[in-house]
Design a protein around this nucleic acid. Structure first.
Lengths: 126, 126
DNA sequence: AATTTTGTGATATGTTTAGTATAACAGATA
DNA sequence: TATCTGTTATACTAAACATATCACAAAATT
């Protein structure tokens, strides 16, 4: 999977890294049990410091997306707690929807966007 | 409207301020043309610095939620560009949905959450 | 006319975060 | 043995966040 970092973005590098990897998992470009590049290797290919990658991996572990094995590094391992995930998603959605509502985006528009995105995710899986 | 800031949050104060005000607009607690408290006044009531409020107001202006009038301060004025807003919402949704999908949350779950939130927003309007 | 309030600008300071740069260590692997 | 892994520690720069004053011009109020 190709990971692209925008160094001009106002988003921190480690945040971009987390999001890209999560996106990769969602689109099945990374599979359960698959091992991610080592912190040193990924750092070198991207051209950033090892600790920045390590921070991203640590956060992914904390958020239940990977497990870190001393022998093999970071491995995709989803810790699924649906109730917790639903609560978090709702909280994040609230912020996004509030902005959208202010800009005249209706309920149907959002449903349509959700479908578009889900279709897109599924498309990439196949 | 009551604006609450969590000083223990990892979200910057000005970001929380922006989100709260946007939430206020979405729930019609703030109306088009209504004027927000002055930067000094709001800063005092919250217990933060004037410039922090000013930063939030400036961002809200930049994002097209308010206009800043030298005479009356910040006034709710929605600059509606639906196409742009849709694109931004899609981008933000993609990140949220990717996380959700990884945690086993399906399309219907998201639609349900969206409906819940929209109902909640409408409820607060009445 | 005088005072107050408004947004705005400049400057300075302290704190935290982000990111980089090294170095070292223990465990696993080849 | 040599190499790879994650991990930890330290040190440093740079940027962001937040506060603290001071000052100014425009508008509103008195």
């Amino acid at each position: 999977m190709i990971i692209e970092i925008d160094f001009n973005s106002d988003e921190a590098i480690y945040v971009q890294l987390c999001n890209q990897i999560i996106l990769g998992i969602a689109t099945s470009q990374f599979h359960e049990g698959e091992q991610l590049p080592s912190v040193r290797q990924l750092a070198e290919t991207i051209g950033i410091n090892m600790h920045t990658v390590n921070k991203a991996y640590s956060i992914l572990q904390q958020d239940g997306f990977v497990k870190i094995d001393r022998r093999r590094g970071a491995i995709i391992a989803l810790d699924i707690n649906k109730l917790k995930a639903l609560a978090e998603a709702k909280q994040e959605l609230a912020v996004v929807l509030a902005r959208a509502i202010c800009k005249g985006i209706g309920r149907d528009d959002i449903h349509s966007l959700v479908d578009q995105l889900y279709d897109n995710f599924i498309e990439k899986i196949q």
